[in-house]
Design a protein around this nucleic acid. Structure first.
Lengths: 340, 340
DNA sequence: AGATCGTCCGAAAACGGTTTAGTAAAAAGG
DNA sequence: CCTTTTTACTAAACCGTTTTCGGACGATCT
């Protein structure tokens, strides 16, 4: 069919192993032979068959990277951060789009095993027993992104420090003078962590905790805006004197804004709103949204670095990594004005 | 290292070829043997080595899918449409994130060749000679998405019918009574097609063509909003009596709205605005954007179908495919009111 | 001159599957 | 009862690389 290493060898009258050596940059080759081989390769338009190469070598230089939902730009940025570092280190990336399905993930892990990937970066929506079991069985380096695995699993992971971030946001809001602050909680592990921070904060400052949890399963978060709307409605009906809302997502924040707009309330004059993520349209003048910004690409990069460290055995048991977040202050939050 | 087909064979006292046959569903196997083999596979937790399998077979059941920019949700939806169909047909998808770089694409094609993919769906930003040459050399089925290749290339492609869609949009706007309609042109092939439609339309209806082209290279379209702003500025300064704007993208449309907002002009009272794509936030009440909606997932699906047809030789030379678009009417466009 | 040492290269054995060709035993046909 | 066909399986070649081991040959040392 296509031209093989044997053709190249024959063409320039050397052995197959010599050609292989040249290709892999061995030094025990005379310059003359090397040149002959390179010329032949170009002439015959020879391209090594990677599947054959993978078969003999123990490594494949492929690492798998799962994306929970390819339509969500957040994950895309995660991915591109990881990709960059991996490419620089000579690895190929095999993306897997999970579409928020646990089965797809399980299936992807099997594929990864069949193809003998060198490692995996995964972002499961949930850590089930079955998942942990599969990870154990495929016996390949895995690092987790954005969803903390059980400690017992031994899977290292990287995420933003949502606890600290939420604390900072709450500090910022109270510094503005707000004391009646509601919180819209995502139905995910991250949501839980931020709620913990929120409640801890409320307790420390002795202010009332007003959190509302989105009641959607984690695999349907794409209707975030509608949920923000509903959550804001509940907040407004339950605690009408709320002066600030910390939403678990910019999407939720904007959903909340839609509700307020309908009710004729204005942001930030009547109520301050903050989100999380710094999505690209958060800065539009209509929203001008104060938000807790996460290190999107940096996270992916860090996870990739951690994985490489494991694969190339620079570190046997890397610890978990929590990246810092920052508050981006925009116009949707202002000082609390008594009776204003 | 890990358990191979030979281990399975030994374990249940049959030959390697028998196990292979069982795995591949051959019928000349007694039920008894088959069961023994399946049991052994489960017991030993055997997983076939896909790289070895790929080496002997001529097909790999892998198809490559390039994404120009993983951060752009438009392409993501393309991809997920294609992915669905391909998975259903037993293919794995190997995504390639091009980050708008022609070099990355070239490199990806080389990889595809080394790994012996069965086929490729690509969305190049530009059709260069080098690209065409590489496609020719890798000799594998390719279909193009969203960027029309030169006819001579023989590469089939699928896209939305932008010419027809633009015509429809212009018809819609003139039906509303507008005659001074500006058009913001994308600096891509698609932009050119729509401009052609726009100009043809203007000529037919004897109205003035007012098109402004974004002067950004195709690989920097992420600043679309800023460009929409600038384009609207130019329109407003050049033709202050413009009553409607057809923007090449929702992003551009929103950028235009930002400008108008700054100038104290209101949409749609002072000027009607329409976009293209029906991005998820187009429906937000602040924008409520009339838009030309494209078949995002359907496109990907169609391209995948076309590729499968070629690979499985159902069709030797598929023609190009142009999908229909539709106008989604929202509040950003209204009837032209003379002196209103 | 013989022993020792580098340098450059080749033969052959993997790697883990698939597939072709063939065979022994059982069933069917005459 | 002998031949043909079918059934259920196996041996071995093959896919295209990498890698180990060793060999030839010229240079250097004693």
């Amino acid at each position: 069919m296509s031209v093989t290493i044997r053709d190249v060898a024959k063409f320039c009258g050397v052995s197959v192993s010599t050609v292989s050596r040249v290709l892999n940059g061995y030094t025990d080759i005379s310059e003359e032979t090397a040149n002959k081989v390179f010329a032949a390769i170009k002439k015959l338009d020879y391209v090594p068959n990677n599947t054959a190469r993978m078969l003999t070598r123990k490594d494949t230089k492929i690492i798998g990277l799962t994306i929970p939902d390819i339509k969500d730009p957040f994950f895309s940025e995660n991915a591109s951060g990881a990709e960059k570092l991996l490419l620089e280190n000579g690895y190929q990336i095999f993306y897997g789009n999970m579409e928020r399905s646990a089965d797809k993930l399980l299936n992807y892990l099997q594929q990864a095993r069949q193809m003998r990937f060198d490692g995996l970066i995964i972002t499961p929506d949930e850590w089930t027993e079955e998942l942990l079991d599969t990870i154990r069985r495929i016996s390949m380096p895995v690092v987790a992104l954005r969803r903390r695995p059980p400690q017992s699993s031994g899977v290292p992971f990287v995420d933003n420090d949502h606890y600290k971030g939420a604390m900072e946001m709450m500090t910022y809001l109270t510094d503005l003078g707000h004391t009646r602050i509601a919180h819209i909680v995502l139905p995910t592990g991250i949501g839980a962590i931020r709620r913990e921070a929120y409640r801890d904060f409320c307790q420390i400052r002795s202010i009332e905790a007003r959190d509302v949890k989105i009641d959607l399963p984690a695999n349907k978060l794409d209707q975030a805006r509608e949920n923000g709307y509903q959550a804001m409605k509940r907040i407004h009906e339950t605690w009408p004197d709320t002066t600030a809302v910390f939403a678990g997502t910019d999407q939720l924040a904007i959903g909340a804004m839609v509700y307020l707009r309908e009710k004729g309330l204005s942001v930030p004059a009547d109520i301050s709103i903050a989100g999380v993520n710094d999505m690209d349209y958060a800065s539009l003048p209509w929203f001008d949204l104060t938000t807790m910004s996460l290190n999107r690409t940096e996270m992916g990069r860090a996870a990739a670095q951690m994985l490489l460290d494991i694969i190339e055995e620079r570190r046997p048991h890397p610890e978990n990594l929590l990246l810092g977040t920052s508050i981006i202050v925009r116009g949707s939050t202002i000082k609390y004005k008594n009776g204003g």
